[in-house]
Design a protein around this nucleic acid. Structure first.
Length: 265
DNA sequence: AATATCGGAACATAAACTAG
DNA sequence: TAGTTTATGTTCCGATATTT
């Protein structure tokens, strides 16, 4: 199947799918895609944001700096098999795979990376396959289609250092409070400070209902002890948890008896 | 049917480590 | 000090839930 846009075919001539390259990630997803856990693009605004009409809030997410000074134990050396030449980045399986990869990045779909593929002739828009979806990308005025790499946009959104650049009000309603970098979700059950992975699955979610829920005690007190009865931690004594649970249930029942009209959630 | 949510695997790479 | 190893942080697939 020839790729739309005249890109390399996604299938071999015999119909078998082209040996799928490893999943290629963009270096920096935009905040919107990041929060939605969806595929992004190097272009700004990215096709997904364009599709959803939130191009004006499509900005690179801010990456955390990696921790330094963490000591490690001694490394175990991998024994090399005979025929194997110890080339750079070749001894770990992961690296091996990585560096065996087709050096010319070939997008599985969509946007040509690095300018090696023909350009869409129409500078104002062209069909773009984003995952399974075809997106007819119309470039907004601020977007220069000749740029393949992250574009620093001029104006307010330029290098939005973090949290102030795009108020949620700039978003369509269905995005709710989606773009609120730094507002740690009150519902987050992560009492620990967000490591990236933790932060990741906080998902800084656009979910408005999240806002309505009971906040969890501040993460800064974290190191593992929450005072919330509901915030039972795995390390908490199981029997005491049971006791708490029983007592809570009893309370709930009795209070329901006393106030039968009180709506229960 | 379209869109949103989110768990978790895959990916990327900086930093610690080590052999030469 | 170049190359290797590993840990940390990010991206986004794909299953599921929710909304329209």
């Amino acid at each position: 199947m020839p790729h739309p846009n005249g890109l390399p075919p996604m299938h071999n001539p015999d119909g078998t799918p082209v040996q799928s390259a490893k999943r290629k990630q963009v270096k920096n997803a935009c905040t919107n895609c990041q929060k939605a856990c969806k595929k992004c693009d190097d272009a700004r605004p990215c096709p997904r944001c364009i599709k959803y009409g939130i191009a004006d809030t499509c900005v690179n997410s801010v990456r955390k700096e990696r921790k330094k000074g963490i000591k490690r134990g001694p490394y175990k050396r991998r024994q090399k098999s005979d025929g194997e030449k110890p080339t750079r980045k070749n001894t770990s399986g992961v690296a091996d795979e990585q560096y065996m990869r087709n050096p010319a990045p070939m997008p599985a779909y969509g946007f040509p990376i690095g300018g090696q593929y023909p350009q869409p002739s129409d500078p104002t828009g062209y069909p773009y396959y984003y995952g399974k979806d075809q997106v007819n990308v119309q470039y907004p005025a601020m977007y220069n289609p000749s740029m393949y790499h992250p574009v620093l946009m001029q104006g307010e959104n330029a290098h939005q250092p973090s949290h102030h650049a795009y108020p949620p009000s700039a978003l369509p309603p269905h995005y709710g409070n989606m773009v609120q970098p730094h507002t740690s979700s009150p519902t987050s059950s992560h009492a620990t400070p967000p490591t990236s992975s933790a932060a990741h699955h906080q998902h800084l979610s656009p979910e408005p209902k999240a806002e309505a829920m009971t906040p969890v005690p501040s993460a800064s007190t974290s190191s593992g002890t929450s005072s919330s009865p509901a915030g039972s931690h795995p390390e908490e004594e199981p029997s005491s948890r049971l006791a708490q649970l029983a007592s809570l249930s009893a309370d709930a029942l009795t209070s329901q008896d006393r106030h039968p009209s009180t709506p229960q959630h």
